[in-house]
Design a protein around this nucleic acid. Structure first.
Lengths: 159, 159
DNA sequence: TATGAAACGAATACCAA
DNA sequence: TTGGTATTCGTTTCATA
């Protein structure tokens, strides 16, 4: 995989704001040709650096109950638990972490009833879960995917 | 805002997989006209139900250190702290929660050095933060934005 | 269904190793 | 001279009225 250079990052920054910005418009903004934009985007897509998606508003879809759940798992069963959780449609994110919880997941529900059902019925039936700390989202301040920064190394190992 | 119906959800499901699926292709898959697809997408965009974005792979951009940080804040200063955190480019997500932590954030860094710098320099200077539990992501199992489900109410208030 | 805009494929030009 | 990248242009596909 070729290294991502400054021009790639500039293209990504524009697409972060609007995933539908035409190649011609990107080319114009960056003062390069449309072909360059196209070939770079093809390469970045091919290398899996990014993909075109849509971001839906969970609340507008009726998913009013948003949670982050920290889980502790039995030694040796963490991966299996993580994989089972990943199958569930309510679960958006699953990661293994160091820290107070072995696994942290993010899950969305249509109602508190559905959340309770999830914890009592779904989680309780997964072998290897020792405990679950449910945090209920009261307010969201930021949920951005614009994390492409101009330069890779802001603070290097000596900083 | 008009209610989101089954057909809207089907359109969103297709776009979740590929945000650039042509209207004609969506129309063909759902056996409806292209005009219907277009008018529905316009309405959904207008209502803020979804937006076209790109999803970049943080690791491929060099953001190898991914964290979830739980914060406790001084009474009365939570909102101010949340807003300050939202300004920081390293921070992707900020939410207020009920549970063990008042605020939960997700942040990405280029290196452990940058993470340490963030905690010691950035966080420590924000007034109102009482404590921070840093969880370091060791492995990611799922990070999906495909949370549009076929039907809104899987389990209703009586279920 | 027609019109303009955007995306695409392929040939060519450029540049640096 | 060669491999990689940028440009250009003709064609096709798409969005839109």
């Amino acid at each position: 995989m070729k290294r991502i250079d400054h021009l790639d990052r500039q293209i990504l920054q524009i697409l972060q704001d609007d995933g539908r910005t035409p190649y011609t418009e990107i080319a114009h903004q960056l003062k390069i040709s449309e072909g360059t934009v196209r070939s770079r985007i093809s390469r970045l897509l091919h290398d899996g650096v990014f993909e075109f998606v849509i971001r839906t508003d969970p609340v507008k879809l009726g998913l009013n109950v948003q949670t982050i759940i920290g889980l502790n798992t039995k030694l040796g069963l963490q991966q299996q638990v993580a994989e089972e959780l990943s199958q569930l449609p309510e679960v958006r994110f699953v990661g293994a972490f160091s820290g107070k919880h072995d696994l942290i997941i993010q899950a969305f529900f249509y109602s508190n009833t559905e959340l309770i059902h999830f914890v009592n019925e779904r989680l309780s039936r997964i072998e290897g879960i020792l405990g679950a700390d449910v945090s209920l989202e009261l307010r969201q301040y930021k949920d951005s995917f614009s994390y492409v920064r101009e330069d890779e190394v802001a603070i290097n190992e000596k900083g």
